[in-house]
């Protein structure tokens, strides 16, 4: 995939950082305001996708590193499962138990395990969408050459 014009490249560079920060904000504040892991993850993935669409596939040498997004995805699923299993041994002894201290409702550090799940699912969704996008673009590249 070729890159686009200079204007598009510059705007994509400026915008993608802002989209990235906004996605992190949405994912981290999932337990106190609308949004959460899935939405934040989609925003994170779209910040990468905008960059790749603007600069072209060759610029980041993504063909050599396509296993890494898959690795991040699998690791975050594994962490979610491990955190869920750890609920069996602490607190109320149930799968996916919420055993960390609850804190003051409405603050950033509250709601026990929920923010950790939010962040992990954000990473997972971002990695999944970016993996699918990379697979599609690399496939098209391989077919056309």
């Amino acid at each position: 995939m070729k890159g686009m014009s200079v204007i598009v490249k510059k705007v994509a560079q400026l915008l993608s950082a802002m989209i990235f920060v906004f996605g992190m904000y949405i994912a981290i504040h999932g337990h106190i305001m609308p949004g959460g892991g899935f939405t934040g993850g989609v925003l994170l993935a779209s910040s990468f996708i905008v960059l790749v669409l603007a600069q072209g596939l060759e610029y980041f040498k993504l063909k050599q590193q396509r296993e890494r997004t898959s690795l991040v995805e699998s690791l975050s699923v594994l962490l979610i499962l491990l955190l869920g299993f750890s609920g069996l041994f602490a607190g109320s002894m149930v799968f996916f138990g919420n055993y960390l201290p609850k804190g003051q409702p409405g603050e950033l550090l509250s709601a026990g395990n929920i923010p950790i799940y939010s962040i992990l699912i954000g990473i997972k969704v971002a990695a999944t969408l970016f993996t699918i996008f990379l697979a599609l673009t690399i496939y098209k590249e391989e077919v056309s050459t």
């Binding site: 337990h31 959460g36 804190g103 409702p105 929920i114 939010s118």
Partner: peptide, 12 residues
């Protein structure tokens, strides 16, 4: 749950 966003409280 301690979460102000009830949707996340139910989800997680």
């Amino acid at each position: 749950t301690g979460a102000t966003n009830l949707v996340k409280g139910v989800l997680w």
